[in-house]
């Protein structure tokens, strides 16, 4: 929580990140002095009210937005410009509508100039892992929202990035599909050991997936508190939902988020 300098072996280091957007009439502070260190292999979930700058935070880590002040590092290297060592998943699947599922996943390889055969093998692995088998050639408009988001997830994982950034990836899905996707993402995280930062509105999602939950305040976005999640590393959706520790943490978070919104 304190602005510790990025230590060796930090996946993501943020210190004193502040972002101000100035328009002609006014100046808004989107993020105010955000500091957070994330260790390799962690799954950090960020919750907060709408417009608290959560998405901006991810974009800063990806090097897509420059902070007004503050420092950010990825894999111990300062972030200057777009980062390649990451996979990014948005709320929208953002697929190329003229490409089938597999070709959409392979876009990642083509854009990076990866080895074709190797990328193809990896794509087939991911397709099987996410249950897209049989839909390799289906165009995006022929896929349901959940399936589209699976394709986007595979695309983000194709190059086995050490860091995966997810901006409300399941926000547009129905509740049931969302639970399935959560369970699958949890399994993928366990299997790959990727560092994940996931922004969400859902408290249940944040607790089920995270090893740490970061709570942010409404604009200007600040980190209010960080909760370690004391649940086993290997989680089962149904078990977690009935676990008293889940209930306690969810209740705490709900209370904190309620006051965060009220104080705004």
């Amino acid at each position: 929580m304190t602005a510790a300098p990025a230590r060796a072996g930090t996946a993501i280091g943020m210190s004193g990140l502040t972002v101000r957007f100035s328009s002609r009439r006014s100046q808004t502070t989107a993020l105010d002095d955000v500091s957070l260190d994330i260790e390799p292999g962690e799954f950090v979930t960020i919750v907060g009210p709408s417009g608290c700058g959560k998405s901006t935070l991810l974009k800063i880590v990806a090097g897509l937005v420059r902070p007004t002040s503050g420092e950010v590092s990825l894999l111990d290297r300062p972030v200057k410009g777009p980062q390649k060592e990451i996979g990014f998943v948005f709320q929208k699947a953002a697929l190329l509508e003229w490409r089938g599922a597999r070709a959409n996943i392979l876009l990642q390889a083509e854009m990076r100039g990866m080895d074709r055969a190797q990328a193809a093998r990896r794509a087939d692995e991911l397709i099987e892992m996410t249950g897209l088998t049989g839909f390799e050639k289906a165009l995006p408009h022929e896929l349901s929202g959940g399936m589209q988001q699976r394709v986007a997830l595979c695309r983000a994982l194709l190059h086995s990035p050490p860091v995966l950034l997810m901006d409300e990836p399941f926000g547009a899905l129905d509740a049931l599909t969302r639970e399935q996707m959560n369970a699958e993402l949890h399994r993928i995280w366990r299997e790959t050991g990727t560092t994940v930062v996931l922004v969400t509105h859902s408290i249940a999602e944040a607790v089920f997936l995270g090893t740490r939950v970061v709570v942010m305040s409404a604009r200007p976005g600040r980190i209010i508190r960080t909760f370690p999640v004391e649940l086993p590393a290997h989680r089962d959706y149904a078990q977690v939902m009935s676990d008293p520790r889940f209930d306690r943490l969810a209740t705490d978070l709900r209370g904190l988020l309620g006051s965060a919104a009220a104080n705004h």
Binding site: E128, M129, G131, E179, A183, D236, A238, Q239
Partner: peptide, 11 residues
């Protein structure tokens, strides 16, 4: 039915 979906025990 997609093949090889080792589920976590959820759905």
């Amino acid at each position: 039915v997609p093949a090889g979906n080792s589920s976590t025990g959820g759905p």
